Amino acid sequence: MAGRNGRTVRDLRRGNRTAVLQRLYFDGPLSRFELGPATGLSSGSVSNVVADLIADGLVEEAGSVDSDGGRPRTLLRVAPDSGQMIGVDVGETRVRVELFDLALTELARVERPLTPQGYDVEVITGHIRDGVAEVLTAQGAAPDRLLGVGVGVPGIVEHTPDRGAVVHGQTIGWDAVPLEQLLRSASRLPDAVPYLIDNGAKTLGQAEMWFGAGRGARNAVVVLFGSGVGACLVTPEVEHGRAVEWGHLTVRVRGRRCRCGAPGCLEAYAGAESLLARWREEGGRPPEDTDEETALTAMLAAAYPPEGTAPDPVALAVL
C-alpha cells in the first residue's frame, strides 16, 4: 500500500535497511543506541531493522562496550563475508585488479604492467576482464555474491543512458571509448553486477572522504601525483567530488611541452614521468630497464639518502 508521498511499506523498509547498513559500513561498529541518532530512526525501528539484517546474514555482532551505568551495549557491524567487491585501477604503468570483502580486506590481487604504448583499448579491456576472472577464481568466489566492480581510469568519464560509461582521455589517446559496453560484451559476470566507472582522481578522492584523511570534512582537495597529476575537489555542492584537470594548468608560459601537447603544464614539471626525464636531462642517472615506480623510488632515495650519505644534488634540485 502506498502512502501520501507514493512510498510503499516495501520502500520504507528498504530505505531503513539502507540507512542502517550505510552507517554501519562507514562508521561502524555501532550499538543500536548509537544507530538511532545516526539514522534518524526510532529505537523500535532500529531494533526491527537490525533483527532483519542479522537474520539475512548482512549484519553481525562485534563485541560490546560499557555504557553509562547500564548494561554493556552490543556493537554491530556489516558482516564481512556477506558480499564482495572488485576494485580496478587503470594507472599509468599498470592495471591492478583487487577483490575485497565488505571489511575491505584484500582477498586477491592481479597486476598487469603497461608499456608506454599500452593504452590500446583492447589491451586495457582485456586486462580488466581477465583480471576480474582471475581474482574470482583465485578466491573461489561466486559471481552472484559480487556487489559491483569499481573502475578508476584516466580522463573524463561521461555517463550516458545508452552506452553506459564513455571515456574521453586525450593524454592516453582515447576518444569517446564506450568502456562499460566493451567490458560487458565479453564479461562472464551476471548482468545484474554493476560496473561503476569514473575518473581515477575522483575515485581516490571519494575513498579518502569515506575512509581516509577526508573523513568528517565538508570541503577538501585530494591530489594525486603519479605519472601525471590529478585532483578531486569536494564541496557541499559537489558531495561526491569533481575531477579537476589540475595537471594541465599552465604554470609557465612557453614552458616544457606536456604529453597533452600544450606547453608549460604543471604535469610537465611535477609528474613522475617528467621528473625522471628532467633528472636524466640534467645529468642524473635513473636506473635502466626498470619500471617508472622503481626509477622514481631510486630518484627519491638519491635525493634523500640515509643520514651520513651525501644527496645527489641534481635529483634534489629537480625535486
Results as ranks from 00 to 15, higher is better:
residue 289 D to H: 11
residue 137 T to E: 13
residue 59 V to N: 04
residue 214 G to M: 04
residue 297 T to K: 14
residue 148 G to K: 09
residue 17 R to W: 05
residue 204 L to R: 08
residue 25 Y to L: 01
residue 36 G to R: 09
residue 94 R to A: 15
residue 271 G to N: 03
residue 319 L to H: 02
residue 31 S to D: 05
residue 207 A to W: 07
residue 203 T to S: 11
residue 58 L to E: 10
residue 125 T to A: 13
residue 182 L to A: 08
residue 11 D to Q: 12
residue 17 R to M: 10
residue 98 E to K: 13
residue 174 W to P: 07
residue 239 E to F: 08
residue 265 C to H: 13
residue 295 A to M: 07
residue 298 A to K: 09
residue 155 G to W: 00
residue 90 V to S: 08
residue 305 P to V: 00
residue 295 A to G: 10
residue 296 L to I: 14
residue 186 A to H: 15
residue 19 A to N: 12
residue 259 R to M: 14
residue 134 E to W: 04
residue 185 S to Q: 15
residue 249 L to T: 15
residue 296 L to Q: 07
residue 70 G to A: 13
residue 128 I to K: 01
residue 241 G to C: 01
residue 10 R to N: 10
residue 153 V to Y: 11
residue 76 L to S: 07
residue 269 Y to W: 11
residue 189 L to A: 02
residue 291 D to C: 01
residue 291 D to S: 02
residue 21 L to H: 01
residue 127 H to Y: 14
residue 23 R to E: 15
residue 206 Q to C: 03
residue 282 E to V: 04
residue 144 D to P: 02
residue 259 R to E: 15
residue 124 I to P: 05
residue 134 E to N: 11
residue 6 G to N: 12
residue 111 E to W: 06
residue 237 E to M: 05
residue 312 D to P: 06
residue 246 W to E: 02
residue 6 G to H: 11
residue 96 R to Y: 03
residue 242 R to Q: 15
residue 274 S to N: 13
residue 215 R to V: 06
residue 83 G to Y: 11
residue 125 T to R: 12
residue 138 A to Y: 00
residue 245 E to F: 10
residue 133 A to N: 12
residue 314 V to W: 00
residue 266 L to C: 08
residue 285 R to W: 00
residue 291 D to E: 01
residue 81 D to W: 03
residue 260 C to V: 02
residue 256 R to L: 14
residue 105 T to A: 14
residue 306 P to S: 02
residue 123 V to G: 04
residue 129 R to C: 08
residue 16 N to H: 15
residue 151 V to T: 06
residue 145 R to P: 07
residue 40 G to L: 01
residue 31 S to V: 04
residue 145 R to W: 09
residue 154 P to Q: 02
residue 170 Q to I: 11
residue 149 V to H: 09
residue 212 G to T: 07
residue 88 V to R: 06
residue 285 R to T: 12
residue 216 G to L: 03
residue 279 W to I: 04
residue 218 R to I: 00
residue 157 V to W: 08
residue 272 A to W: 06
residue 79 A to N: 13
residue 46 V to W: 05
residue 239 E to L: 11
residue 96 R to D: 15
residue 205 G to T: 06
residue 197 I to N: 05
residue 218 R to G: 04
residue 196 L to G: 04
residue 60 E to R: 10
residue 197 I to Q: 01
residue 186 A to M: 10
residue 180 E to K: 08
residue 153 V to C: 11
residue 16 N to I: 01
residue 240 H to F: 12
residue 223 V to G: 09
residue 276 L to A: 02
residue 264 G to P: 07
residue 37 P to H: 06
residue 248 H to R: 12
residue 148 G to F: 08
residue 159 H to K: 13
residue 254 R to T: 13
residue 265 C to V: 09
residue 258 C to Y: 08
residue 59 V to T: 00
residue 10 R to L: 11
residue 116 P to G: 05
residue 102 L to G: 04
residue 62 A to C: 12
residue 205 G to R: 02
residue 286 P to C: 04
residue 288 E to G: 05
residue 284 G to V: 10
residue 124 I to M: 08
residue 92 E to I: 14
residue 126 G to C: 06
